[in-house]
Design a protein around this nucleic acid. Sequence first.
RNA 1: GCCGAAGUAGCUCAGUGGUAGAGCGCGGCCCUGAAAAGGCCGGCGUGGGGGGUCCGAUUCCCUCCUUCGGCA
Length: 304
Amino acid sequence: MKQKIVFIVGPTATGKTDIAVRLAKKISGEIISCDSMQIYKGMDIITSKPSPVLMRKIPHYLIDIISPDKEYNVSQFRKAAVKKIREASLKGRIPLLVGGTGLYMSVLLDGIFNIKTENKNTRRKLYNEACKFGRARLHDRLKEIDPAAALKIHPNDTKRIIRALEVYEVTGKPISELQKHRVGLWSKYDVKIFCLNMNRDELNRRIEKRVGRMFKSGLVKEVKKLLKNKISRTASCAIGLKEIRDYLKGGYDLEAAKQLIARNTCLYAKRQLTWFRKDKRIEWVNIKPGDKPQQIARQIFNKL
RNA sequence: GCCGAAGUAGCUCAGUGGUAGAGCGCGGCCCUGAAAAGGCCGGCGUGGGGGGUCCGAUUCCCUCCUUCGGCA
């Protein structure tokens, strides 16, 4: 009998947090965050973390675990999440993976090639080369060493070109070869994936409302505090950081910052949906305007 | 009321006597160590209304409407 794992995923602002806590209570579960931004300490409002009250009700893992001046990546997430899943299962609890980071979900379920490949120096060197001579030159080199990857990676996608070259320089093997070897949890566990969704206009409205609430709860103050210290490249990707920084610098007024954040969040939600739509293992849960979190939690519970 | 400027995509605006583009938005997609990131694709249009010149008008002319400045 395989152990059960439940994923609650979906675009931002669909109410995952609340529903997950209610479901966790029903099934004696523990929540493991599947979110690339909520891992950072002190980024509470900006990443819409579950409230302390909610986190006290049910154990939450992989939230607030690293300092915003540290970088973080998928591989670290995978290791940590696998460990937490194992621990929860050993305790007889059902691991509830909750979040909106599609890549993190996919890497958990389907694996990642697991060789130590990241090399800051190599990466920096390649970036400098891209700046100096243009990314076309790097893409051409990729064509030579790894035609399969070069075909898949668009010539404008500097980040992935560099990553592919970095992997080759560090391991001597083409990334397209390494990527073939991945093992995830999908076959080892009894996995259920639920993706919350709603009408797009409704979702955008909810995002706008939530951004308004974030400002009322002190988003600007939180960002000011964050900006006093170093913020890593990965942490600084959080939507809202650069918008508020530019507002503070006088680039535009508060209302403009608010609108920009809402717009960028809507774009983000759109990308999240693209990611989830692709995964045919997902069961979709449609939320209508009046639906209460407990109703949705029950609906999911009945499908387990 | 007079003078001037402008009306082109959802928005901001280019441009041309041979039925139109850009950026942003919007929609779709890709994604394996930065993923709330990064990248790709798609024009979504009664060219303010009407009339005229012309083989042909979004472009030139007339008129009306609207908006914004200035003067009264």
